[in-house]
Amino acid sequence: MKNQIYPCLWFDGKAQEAAQFYCSIFKNSKITADNQTVVTFELNGKKFMGLNGGPEFKFNEAVSLVVDCETQEEIDHLWDKLTSEGGKEGNCGWLKDKFGVSWQIVPTVLPKLLSNPEKAKNVMEAFMKMKKFDIEKLINS
Rank of each mutant, 00 (worst) to 15 (best):
K14H: 15
F57I: 15
Y22A: 09
N35D: 13
G45T: 09
V66N: 13
S29A: 12
L9E: 01
Q104F: 11
F26P: 05
V63A: 15
Y6R: 05
N140V: 05
E74V: 12
T83Q: 00
K131H: 10
N3P: 00
L114E: 03
W10S: 03
P107S: 04
S115E: 15
W10E: 06
S84I: 12
E70N: 11
K129N: 08
K27I: 15
Y6K: 01
N140R: 11
F41P: 04
E74I: 11
W79G: 01
E89W: 13
K14V: 14
T40V: 07
L114F: 11
E56N: 15
W79A: 01
G87Q: 03
G50H: 03
E136M: 07
S102K: 07
E42C: 04
D34N: 14
G50I: 01
Q72G: 08
P55T: 09
I5F: 10
F59S: 13
V39W: 02
D34F: 13
F21P: 10
V109R: 00
L113T: 00
V106G: 00
D80G: 07
E118P: 06
F57S: 10
K88I: 11
P107N: 03
I31V: 12
V38E: 07
G93L: 02
T32Y: 05
P7K: 08
L82M: 10
A15V: 05
W79Y: 06
K132C: 11
D34Y: 10
